[in-house]
Amino acid sequence: MTIAANPVANVGRATLEFLADVGRLCIFAAQSLLAVFTPPFYFANLGRQLLSVGFYSLPVVGLTALFTGAVLAQQIYIGTGRFNAEATVPTIVVFGITRELGPVIASLMVAGRVAAAMAAELGTMRVTEQIDALTTLATNPFRYLIAPRVLAATLMLPILVLIGDIIGVMGGWLLATTVLDYNSIGYLQRTVDFLETWDVISGLIKAGVFGFIIALMGCYQGFNSSGGAQGVGRATTNAVVSASILILAANYIITSIAFTD
């Protein structure tokens, strides 16, 4: 049929569908943001989400930060060793962690946990008509379900990343003082000597944006899922994949626009 015969029409259709998708996502994001600021506020739901996004992500974020910090110290030690600049290891490690690896790796890990959980939960609620039931009970699902999730993730990610930053630096320090021959106090001194507040803050701002992306994609995919258990599975996968890609893309955009100094 024409589908195979007309690649131009195919590309055109795919492009239109993609643009429509982007449009729907933007509307959804706007509705979610609006819901965050419109009463009634469901504080119990917010509390539950703060706990599940924040507290229960701590082990994952802590462990990945620890290993990342350690391996970073190891590699930078090798790299700087080639031109006798091993003394800069603590400075570069903390710089890399606070500005890039801390926020990005923590967010990717949390995306795997949280976006998937949100998509699965909301997706199940959608296919079992619980979201419709909410609406008929005169409760706006954006305010009841989505606002608490978006707010919780946006608030908790910076906190998680700050903790991850500290653990990451400790990971580097641990490796440097045990495997390599660094002096403990000297390493820590070097870590803070050239660190600027902005290095940390810019990473935390990114984390907030990434948190928003994680909750947004989880909610969007779950909220719009259809087609029973299979549909929920698809929503879950899509949520994690799209959140991860958007995090990396947003990271590049934010860094190149706002954080070039």
């Binding site: 609620m125 079992t128 008509e129 619980q130 419709d132 039931a133 909410l134 008929t136």
Partner: peptide, 10 residues
């Protein structure tokens, strides 16, 4: 509204 599948909040 009584939904077909109940639609109770689990």
């Amino acid at each position: 509204m009584l939904f077909q599948g109940g639609a109770l909040f689990d």
